[in-house]
Design a protein around this nucleic acid. Sequence first.
DNA 1: ATGACGGAAGTTTTCCGA
Length: 275
Amino acid sequence: MKVATWNVNSLRVRLPQVLAWLAQEQPDVLALQETKVTDDAFPAVPLQALGYDTLYSGEPSYNGVALLSRRPPTEVQIGIPGFADPQRRCIAASYAASDLPGGSLRVVNLYVPNGQSVGSERYAYKLHWLSRLNDWLRTELSERPSLLVLGDYNIAPDDRDVHDPIAWKDHIAVSVPERLAFCGLLDLGLTDAFRLFEPLAGHFSWWDYRTDAFRRNLGLRIDHILVSQPLVGGCIACHIDRAPRKAVRPSDHAPVVVEIAVPATNQTIDSTPLT
DNA sequence: ATGACGGAAGTTTTCCGA
């Protein structure tokens, strides 16, 4: 299974790029953030025409998340249970996958608050939001063996994920309390899929629109795919697709993609007869 | 220290992003 996350910074503006990327990459699930579109205006028809089911939770101007999938969703959850948050930042669903532990893949799609600046009201909201997320994911992990928690975390987990760690020290997305909150998610039993394959610095998922930051590779790695322990062994690849960031009028984020082998795939490879 | 770019709302300017 191929699952991806992409902060599109307005789905209405980026729809042609999303449609082209879906047609080319054929992910089983694509999680979108910053759709910036209300539910009544969500462009479901062209996405369905490509064979994707749609789930979405939006609001005017800001935030908004969606899940696009080639198989039908079940057990849909909008928002963090028990957390009355008016901002549309979380949507989750399950997808049948008989070869995976538990028989289905659970996908939790997040748009973690930006936080604006360390010490601000929005920063306090970000940390509170992450705390409520942590509480909920503890329950999810106990009930869903095959769990993916992906999206725009707005946190660069360590200095390898920051183009200039000295300049960014203690700034938003990099501050110690934010990184501790991210570690708190890993401590629940989640693993950063990207770091299963790439140990080096300099790989980013976001670049500022200003100052030619993408061409100079001045970015942050803040979009992540976390996987539960039963899925770790099945992860066969995780990469950041920089191609859409080179488009005309791109999003400032690039998609992150994970590929998960189901046991049947391994068996097929292992049983290939020698010639 | 500030702004630089881009989207949205909505009307010429402001808020927000990271």
